[in-house]
Simulated assay, not measured.
Amino acid sequence: MGTTDPASPQKPLASPDQSRIVEAVETRLPFSRTFKNLTALAGDASNRRYFRVEFNESAPGSLILMQLAEPEAFKHSEEAVSGASHQITELPFLNVRTQLANAGVPVPGLYYYDQTAGLLYLEDFGDLTLSEACRDAPPHRVEMLYRQAVDVLADMQIKATSLADARCLAVHRGFDVPLLMWEFDHFLEYGIAARRGRPVADGEFSEIRDEFRKIAEQLAGQPRVFVHRDYHSRNLMVDGRRLGVIDFQDALMGPATYDLASLLRDAYIALDETLIDRLIGHFLDRLEERGHLRTDRDAFRRLFDFTSIQRNLKAAGRFVYIDQVKGNPKFLADIPRTLGYVKRNLHKYPELKALRRLLSAHVTELQ
Rank of each mutant, 00 (worst) to 15 (best):
I21Y: 04
D230L: 13
I322G: 12
H232L: 10
D296R: 03
V363T: 04
E217Y: 05
N47R: 12
L130W: 04
D250R: 06
V142P: 05
F187Q: 11
L263Y: 11
V320E: 09
E183G: 06
I246T: 12
D259N: 03
T307F: 13
F304P: 13
G174T: 00
R344W: 01
M1S: 10
G118R: 10
H228T: 08
P92Q: 02
P30Q: 08
G2N: 10
D17Y: 07
D17E: 15
L279E: 02
S32H: 15
G221M: 06
M144I: 08
I276H: 11
L293N: 04
A101H: 12
D165S: 14
V81R: 02
Q99H: 09
G254N: 06
L128Y: 08
Y231C: 05
Q99F: 01
R97K: 14
A267I: 07
E79N: 07
E79K: 11
L355M: 13
K214E: 09
A80M: 08
R357T: 14
R241L: 11
G254H: 03
V320F: 11
L264F: 08
R213P: 03
V225R: 01
N235I: 10
Q310A: 12
L358E: 06
R337D: 07
E79W: 13
I276G: 08
R147D: 01
I215E: 03
I21G: 04
P106G: 05
L359I: 05
A133P: 04
L359Q: 01
V325W: 08
L346F: 02
R337Y: 08
F283V: 10
A270N: 14
L41W: 07
D285V: 01
E288W: 00
D127Y: 11
R301I: 15
L120T: 02
P9N: 12
D5S: 14
I158A: 02
E211N: 03
R49L: 05
D272V: 00
P16N: 13
F226A: 03
Q67D: 12
P60T: 13
V238S: 12
K11L: 15
T89F: 07
S8K: 15
L366I: 04
P255D: 04
E143R: 14
L339P: 10
D230S: 14
G174M: 00
L366F: 05
G104S: 01
K348T: 11
V177C: 10
R234E: 12
I158V: 13
F175A: 05
L169K: 00
F212A: 01
Q87S: 15
P9Q: 14
D305W: 08
H76C: 04
E204T: 12
S62W: 06
R48A: 10
A216E: 09
R278W: 09
A45W: 12
F300I: 05
L263E: 04
R52I: 15
A133I: 09
D44E: 15
A103Y: 03
Y113S: 11
D239R: 14
Q115H: 07
S46H: 09
H140N: 14
L359C: 01
D210Y: 04
K343W: 03
E217I: 04
A170F: 02
I88G: 02
T34H: 15
I276N: 07
G2H: 08
A361S: 14
V225I: 01
S162F: 06
C168Y: 03
E70Y: 07
R224M: 06
A69D: 08
R301A: 14
L63G: 06
